[in-house]
Design a binder for these strands. Structure first.
Length: 597
RNA sequence: GGCCCCGUAGCUCAAUCGGAUAGAGCACGGGAUUUCUAAUCCCGCGGUUGCAGGUUCGAGUCCUGCCGGGGUCACCA
């Protein structure tokens, strides 16, 4: 093996970024040719090496001789300074030349490092967070917003064009309830006159309705009416239904109030979106798409795909694909939730015919619903049906269980953002100006919250303990932000002394803390790709943490500016590339970069 | 009841296509600051990966059956 290695090490060296290097190796292995290609992974920290080639699968072909298998695998490879075989693993290290070159190139070339071209020319739509307009945003929406935005940014890193779309559920019985709540208990007040943020104001109307409605239901059940009956017969519910019919009939007064109240809500939402640096390229309103859905159902009906029951309701039979039967139009001809989704799905692809993917960021409580949607579109023969991807995420739970409006346990988004800000403010340097302190507090508070919501596998539920709330130490957003700030300040100091991080000299030796950091830095493109393709920002969050842990270890133990050449310039380059990498991670997770902390 | 998701240290979470001695944070105990920001670093403590089988060179990971938790199966959204 050493012999084979000596041969290849004589080849000229050229530093390649992750994807280029692996592609080159794969080509070499295919030409070799090997009975099977080895898997490449990062060498675990306790082992010496950067990359590990797994050659277990080759044992059969090489009669269980690891040395022979390793030789065959290593033969065509370049850039390697050291290799050792342990069991079925070949751990390899890179030369100091390679690393110096890497540190230079990573500073000047973003393409292939912080920006990849794996999805260039692809267009993809991400729909999030699609709120109802009867209540303010809550913690669940925050998880949705963080996930959605991060997934968008991940795909943009891969070179894709991303369309951020929001679907506003602006019609339906819930809006009618808010309107009645306002008429009964708040009119003629407005958010302005009440001094309340618009979405919160409308939320209060809704809650007021629900409270009065519940009182009516209680009274009816006390008089011996079954609850099902009481829920329908309560005067307030009747009124809400009448209002919904008036809305569908286009009653001018109803529409005017509806528009005004939705306007209040949008203004409130926009404030929160702005605070979170979220903007949309396209906003769909259900009030504008639900009729399209009805047309789709009619189409399916005329093509014999759906059928009308005797009572007039329209059904789809999906029992053959294990999804049972599903109503698409009520017996009175009005549309249900899935009806409008059919119309919206069509519209998205009419607006953007070249979408490679249409992503829906929606909680896992709607897994079944999304399966129905895809199955219905497939049945309708929509060729885009398979381009739909449901990014299903788990719910945010409290120690007491689910958040419940009725029990007042809903964690409000705006309140939480304020609380995080206040918490972070306490840790800011009192010598700074008030405006600086608030700017840092906002960045760090949001950083903590966003990291917290992103660090867990999307499909898993999150347990949110309001008492303990969000940490600012340990495995947190501020930990990564702090690493970024440290690097930034160090580089500023170096610049004051006229040091140039791009002038990276080849060090005599690379010490373990440097190599551990280099390994992580090198793997950035790998994590960007995995996180994007898996629609899983948590992968990147963990990467960013591990990266920063290693940076801190390096920072704590190894002087940079005070070091002697050539170590100084090499370390300075290392710090610079770390700064580039951690900034890439934070930006992709949509976590703010504070200037100082 | 059918279907889907989850179950890893006291708590919150990792573990890449099935790979090395299952790793972090919090909490707890101890230590580091004349040096580029200590929101940091180092050391210690902590495990029958829910249970029982199966597949194979190798299983937290795949298969089967149980147990526990959550979701869903609306002419609600």
């Amino acid at each position: 093996m050493t012999k084979a290695f000596a041969k290849v090490s004589a080849l000229p060296l050229r530093m390649l970024f992750w994807h280029e290097l692996l592609a080159q190796w794969e080509t070499a292995w295919r030409e070799a040719p090997l009975p099977e290609l080895p898997k490449v992974s990062l060498t675990p920290p306790e082992q010496k090496g950067i990359l590990t080639l797994n050659i277990f699968p080759l044992f059969k072909a090489y009669k269980g001789n690891p040395q022979k298998a390793a030789e065959a695998v290593l033969y065509p490879l370049r850039h390697i300074s050291h290799a050792e075989v342990i069991k079925g693993f070949v751990n390899i290290s890179f030369t100091a030349d390679f690393w110096a070159d890497f540190l230079r190139k990573a500073q000047t070339a973003s393409q292939g490092y912080t920006h990849l071209s794996l999805a260039v020319g692809e267009q993809l739509m991400v729909e999030y967070p699609s709120p109802n307009t009867n209540k303010p945003l809550h913690l669940g929406h925050l998880r949705n917003l963080c996930l959605g935005e991060s997934v968008c940014r991940l795909w943009e890193r891969l070179g894709a064009e991303v369309i951020r779309a929001n679907l506003v559920n602006d019609r339906g019985i819930h809006i009618s309830k808010s309107m009645i709540g306002w008429k009964r208990f708040f009119a003629p007040a407005t958010p302005h006159s009440a001094g309340v943020k618009g979405d919160h104001f409308v939320g209060q109307c809704y809650v007021a309705f629900e409270k009065a409605y519940k009182a009516e239901v209680d009274e009816l059940t006390a008089r011996g009416l079954p609850e099902e009956e009481a829920l329908v017969q309560a005067p307030l519910f009747q009124e809400a239904q009448a209002l919904l019919r008036a809305w569908e009939a286009g009653d001018p007064n109803t529409l005017a109030l509806w528009r005004e109240m939705n306007g209040w809500v949008y203004e409130g939402f926009d404030q929160t979106f702005r605070r979170m640096s979220i903007r949309f390229d396209k906003i769909y309103y259900e009030s504008e798409t639900y009729l399209l859905g009805k047309a789709v159902v009619e189409e399916g009906l005329s093509r014999g795909i759906f059928h009308r029951a005797e009572d007039g309701a329209v059904w789809a039979d999906l029992t053959d694909v294990g999804l049972g039967r599903k109503v698409l139009l009520r017996r009175d001809g009005t549309s249900v939730y899935i009806t409008q989704d059919l119309g919206t799905a069509d519209l998205k692809f009419r607006d953007y015919p070249n979408l490679k993917r249409s992503v829906y960021v929606i909680g896992n409580e709607q897994d079944h619903h999304m399966r129905l949607l895809a199955a219905l579109l497939r049945r309708l023969g929509r060729e885009f049906a398979d381009k739909i991807y449901h990014l299903s995420y788990g719910m945010v739970e409290l120690p007491t269980g689910r958040m419940k409006t009725r029990e007042g346990t809903v964690v409000d988004a705006d309140d939480l953002l304020d609380e995080m800000h206040a918490r972070a403010y306490e840790l800011t340097d009192a010598d700074l100006s008030e405006s600086d302190r608030h700017e840092i507090a906002e960045a760090v508070g949001q950083g903590a919250l966003r990291f917290y919501l992103l660090r867990t596998d999307p499909k898993k539920n999150i347990l949110f303990d309001p008492a303990e709330s969000i940490d600012l130490k340990g495995f947190t957003g501020p930990f990564l932000q702090y690493g970024y700030v440290r690097a930034k300040r160090l580089l500023e100091k170096a610049l004051e002394q006229g040091l140039d991080p791009t002038e990276v000299r080849v060090p005599e030796t690379i010490i373990p803390v440097e190599e551990a950091l280099l390994q992580q830095l090198y793997a950035l493109p790998h994590y960007l790709e995995s996180a994007a393709k898996g629609f899983d920002p948590a992968l990147l969050a963990h990467y960013g943490y591990e990266l920063t842990r290693r940076f801190n270890e390096f920072y704590q133990t190894s002087p940079v500016i005070g070091a002697t050449e050539p170590a100084r310039s090499f370390r300075l380059g290392l710090v610079k590339v770390y700064q580039i990498a951690i900034a890439t991670v934070l930006q992709t997770l949509a976590i703010p970069l504070p200037e100082r902390m």
